[in-house]
């Protein structure tokens, strides 16, 4: 539960820091983690936008993505891929996990959610919670497999070390009080184009328009000739793929994964989606960055053990005082 923060504080530069430096450092860390949270939040918000389901299994899907990545690192000996090979390793992991999580999310919809369409919403929600449990158990089983690469132990529940495939060297120089690493850049370099691409897809493509139409009125969408089930399936595919990317970015950024990662990061992401205005894409991004920053500032200025309480406090306050979220009222562009 405390893994990401532990790693982050190690990466803080050895030089004495003024309060401005401390703040800047928290902001950098916060934005990086926030972008990862945002990527997962998009998966929640897209699915909610289109079928009004809080897909509790989404975070756990990401857990499996990171387990797949770690397994591939071991199976393909990626730690030894030097230079350009390192880039190739990262790209391979990103794409594999995106394909895997996208396909798995599509399958979950096909098997566990689609048969329940038109039934009471509660049935769907229970199914989602059930899927979450199943995925967590698969992650536990996977983590217990006797694999060399599972540093940290192949005790099922033990956190696994994720090899550092991306340099942690300070790009501002070893003497700088503030640390910006390749990892921070990597997060931005991968997430920003994906978010721009997704926005373009939803705004401008035929599929994107169909997604918005289904979100706004599924019966009307069917009457327009849209294959509603297929569009919903595509939404799960895309949201799952983004979760797959996020799971690899998370693992590479934090260097540790566990079967609970999806639960914790998923909760952050869910909170981000609600905070931003569930159903709103820009809301998920803004909410993700805000939650990332709040986590970093709470870790830095309150105490890491209070951070979850702070995040959940925000969730409750949002639900009570502004259930439509930050961007929900103005920009109610679902999906």
């Amino acid at each position: 539960m405390i893994m990401s923060q532990a790693v982050v504080s190690e990466s803080v530069a050895p030089v004495a820091m003024g309060w401005g430096d401390v703040l800047s450092q928290q902001l950098i860390t916060g934005v990086s983690n926030g972008m990862i949270i945002a990527m997962i939040a998009i998966g929640y918000t897209m699915v909610y936008g289109i079928i009004e389901l809080i897909n509790f299994a989404h975070g756990d899907l990401c857990t499996l993505g990171s387990f797949l990545a770690l397994t591939m690192v071991g199976a393909l000996g990626m730690e030894a891929w030097a230079g350009m090979g390192g880039t190739a390793a990262v790209v391979t992991l990103l794409i594999s996990s995106a394909v895997f999580c996208g396909a798995l999310n599509w399958t979950i919809d096909r098997v566990a959610y689609r048969p329940l369409r038109g039934k009471p919403k509660l049935a769907l929600l229970v199914s989602a919670i059930g899927c979450s449990f199943i995925l967590v158990n698969i992650a536990l089983f996977w983590g217990g497999l006797p694999m060399e690469v599972f540093g940290g132990g192949n005790q099922a529940a033990a956190p696994k070390d994720f090899p550092s495939l991306i340099s942690n060297e300070n790009l501002l120089g070893a003497q700088s009080a503030i640390t910006v690493t390749w990892r921070d850049l990597f997060v931005v370099i991968v997430t920003v184009p994906l978010m721009i691409g997704l926005t373009w897809l939803v705004k401008s493509t035929r599929l994107g328009k169909a997604m918005r139409a289904v979100a706004q009125n599924p019966i009307a969408a069917a009457l327009m000739g849209i294959d509603v089930n297929r569009v919903i399936g595509s939404t799960f595919l895309i949201g799952g793929a983004l979760g797959g990317f996020a799971s690899v970015i998370y693992a590479l950024y934090n260097n540790t994964i566990s079967f609970q990662m999806g639960y914790r990061t998923g909760m952050d992401a869910f909170t981000a989606a609600v905070l931003g205005g569930i159903g709103s894409l820009p809301g998920a991004v803004v909410g993700g960055i805000v939650i990332g920053l709040v986590r970093a500032l709470s870790d830095g200025y309150i105490e890491a053990r209070w951070t979850n309480s702070v995040v959940f406090g925000i969730l409750i306050l949002t639900l009570v005082f502004r259930p439509s979220g930050i961007l929900g009222a103005k920009l109610r562009e679902k999906v």
């Binding site: 035929r206 139409a213 706004q216 679902k334």
Partner: peptide, 25 residues
């Protein structure tokens, strides 16, 4: 084609986009 009861237009698509959805196929 059907013009359904209660109209069921897409409230957050523009008028033009609504019309384009009609030609989806």
């Amino acid at each position: 084609a059907q013009v359904p009861e209660g109209r069921r237009i897409f409230p957050r698509l523009t008028v033009r986009e609504n019309l384009e959805m009609g030609g989806f196929l």
